[in-house]
Simulated assay, not measured.
Amino acid sequence: MGAWLLLPAMLYYLAGTGWPRSSLLSDKGLVYGRLGHPVKIYVKLHQNSPILVCMDSHRASEETVDPTYLWIGPNEKMLTGNKQFNITETGTLIVKDFLELLSGLYTCTLSYKTIKAETQEETIEKKRYDFMVFVNPFAPGWRDACGGSVDCEDVTNQNILKARDRIEEFFRSQASISSHRFNKTVPAIHFVDHSFHVVRIDSCRPGFGKNEGLHSNCASCCVVCSPGTFSPDVDVTCQICISVHIYGAKSCP
């Protein structure tokens, strides 16, 4: 009686590769602020952020007199236009080549004048808009690997299933060749149909984790660990560490 070949399961890694689209993202790729509510945004590692607009969509549809814009970054320092932060005259912000340490709260204060029609009296109005910007670890090259799809997880799944089918076909063809070579007798090693399986391994790279409570609109994403948490390995969640004060920590001091 021939021996059976036990094929180990193929392990694969799918770490939150979706590209969640904000409900405030316009067709032109603009993300508007929202008074009293931080807008959460998820940026691919080493990619540019979407265009953050220092006003809400309602204000953008109205006339704004003599507007000025003040952007404050995660380090609570005023942002100035440079190679990393692209700030336009109309108050929009793009963060280029996004990294873990750039994650955090981006605040913009919009100041503008209102004029009373009866008295022509001018008043300065101020509105604050908060953007919570997080990075997830999908590295450069994802567009090529996923064929430009915005849902790369589906594409990755399809590629894994294709690989499984091809490996299964390889062993099946080898069994057929061996069977003919040995005059159709059962070879010492042969393949059993439907005995090959793939198993999904859900994990995140160090410094990243999933948090459905904090990121309910991106629950399947591996998002950079927030201050106060860390992840030293390929675990699914970030662990608590009160001495951590940065984003993306991989150890607890």
Rank of each mutant, 00 (worst) to 15 (best):
L6M: 12
L7M: 13
L7G: 03
L7Y: 14
A9V: 14
A9D: 14
M10V: 13
M10H: 08
L11N: 11
L11K: 09
Y12V: 09
Y12D: 09
Y12R: 12
Y12M: 08
Y13Q: 07
L14N: 09
L14M: 12
L14I: 07
A15D: 15
A15W: 13
G16A: 10
G16F: 11
T17D: 07
T17M: 15
T17P: 10
T17C: 12
T17F: 07
G18F: 00
G18D: 07
W19E: 12
P20F: 02
R21E: 09
S22F: 02
S22W: 02
S22A: 11
S22I: 08
S22Q: 08
S23E: 15
L24H: 03
L25C: 04
S26W: 06
S26T: 14
S26A: 10
S26K: 05
D27I: 03
D27M: 10
D27N: 10
K28C: 00
K28P: 00
K28R: 06
K28W: 04
K28A: 07
G29I: 01
G29V: 00
L30I: 00
L30V: 03
L30N: 12
V31R: 11
V31H: 12
Y32S: 12
Y32M: 09
Y32W: 06
G33R: 05
G33T: 04
G33N: 04
G33K: 05
G33F: 03
G33W: 02
R34C: 14
R34A: 15
L35R: 05
G36R: 12
G36S: 11
G36I: 11
G36H: 11
G36E: 12
G36P: 11
H37R: 13
H37I: 13
P38V: 11
P38K: 13
V39E: 10
V39I: 08
V39P: 04
V39H: 06
K40R: 14
I41P: 02
I41V: 15
I41A: 02
V43H: 04
V43R: 05
K44M: 04
N48P: 05
N48D: 13
N48L: 01
N48Q: 10
S49W: 00
S49T: 06
S49Q: 04
S49C: 03
P50N: 00
I51S: 10
L52P: 04
L52F: 06
L52Y: 04
L52K: 03
V53M: 08
C54Q: 03
D56S: 12
D56E: 06
D56G: 15
D56V: 08
S57K: 15
H58S: 14
H58E: 15
H58K: 15
A60C: 05
S61T: 08
E62Y: 05
E63L: 11
E63K: 10
E63M: 07
E63G: 05
T64H: 06
T64A: 10
